[in-house]
């Protein structure tokens, strides 16, 4: 089958316009971050008439950005680490063992995705207070890890299912324990799956807003999304130049890591994680 040349051109135009619609708000952010307030006011969507770095300087030097960046980095990387440590063995158990409660465990795991934040946070207050984790970054790390668990365990189970058990059986005859065969045979073959889990957890933790807002009590413990929402303020005049610069600074680190990891995330998602 061939497509009429005019139709083919139309197809490409339609795709380019769609992508432009998806990229346009980010272009606006970049433009605004490099403009003066006056420039933003007089031309709300044009390119900067003269480029200024003042907005970035302001965010880095005169706000708590670096403190909140440190919090976000600690929380996000701990979440990635903990997620991998918790979900890899669980995915392995689901893939290799038959046990009572296996279906119940799966149902519970998947159902947690629907639990309303408000109920979880009200219930968590008691837990976190009991263990002295209120206003501690570690409390947030555990939360974020639990959010990444349904997706991550499911994705890794799918990866492990595809690895032939014959490889492990051979190793076990040679005296490998189950844990050793997971560490030495299954995990090295599942690196793309682990990278997908890492990308997913990183994105989730870095961008998560509600729990970060409610569990943390002071600016010294806020993560970047909360920093941004406070920067925006509630009413009054918004300084769009510095705000756009801050929004970009918040987005860029994970955006770059996302571009590196998206390949694994997409193939994990589409290759059995959800189905």
């Amino acid at each position: 089958m061939r497509l009429h040349p005019a139709k083919q051109v139309l197809l490409h135009v339609a795709v380019v316009v769609s992508i432009a619609m998806l990229a346009f708000p980010i272009v606006l952010l970049v433009f605004n971050s490099l403009k003066t307030e006056m420039d933003i006011f007089t031309s709300p969507m044009g390119a900067p008439t003269h480029v200024t770095w003042e907005n970035f300087r302001h965010v880095l030097a005169e706000t708590s950005f670096l403190v909140n960046l440190k919090n976000s980095a600690i929380v996000a990387f701990s979440t990635v680490l903990l997620s991998v440590l918790v979900t890899a063995p669980a995915g392995y158990a689901l893939s290799r063992f038959r046990f009572r409660g296996r279906t119940l465990f799966s149902i519970w795991l998947l159902a947690t995705q629907s639990f309303p934040g408000i109920i979880m946070v009200l219930g968590l207050f008691t837990v976190l207070r009991t263990y002295g984790l209120l206003n501690r970054l570690f409390g947030l790390v555990i939360m974020h890890t639990s959010f990444s668990m349904p997706f991550s365990i499911w994705l890794l189970k799918g990866y492990f299912d595809k690895i032939p058990t014959a490889l492990e059986e051979a190793a076990q005859i040679d005296g490998c324990t189950r844990l050793q065969s997971l560490m030495r045979i299954v995990l090295p073959l599942s690196v793309p799956g682990l990278l997908a889990v890492a990308t997913f957890s990183l994105l989730l933790s870095w961008n998560e807003f509600f729990f970060a807002l409610v569990i943390m009590r002071d600016n010294a413990h806020y993560t970047l999304p909360v920093f941004l929402s406070r920067f925006l303020g509630s009413g009054g005049v918004v300084q769009w130049g510095p705000l756009s610069a801050a929004a970009l600074l918040v987005s860029i680190p994970v955006f770059v890591l996302f571009l590196l990891g998206q390949r694994y995330l997409v193939s994990g998602l589409t290759g059995g994680a959800i189905k």
């Binding site: 669980a90 063992f97 465990f105 979880m120 946070v121 009200l122 639990s146 189950r178 997971l182």
Partner: peptide, 20 residues
């Protein structure tokens, strides 16, 4: 293998749900 995941699930999903 399941224990770490079960621990996290009970601590930050089962218990808070009931409590909440």
């Amino acid at each position: 293998f399941l224990l770490p995941a079960l621990g996290v699930l009970c601590l930050v999903s089962l218990y808070p749900l009931i409590q909440g």
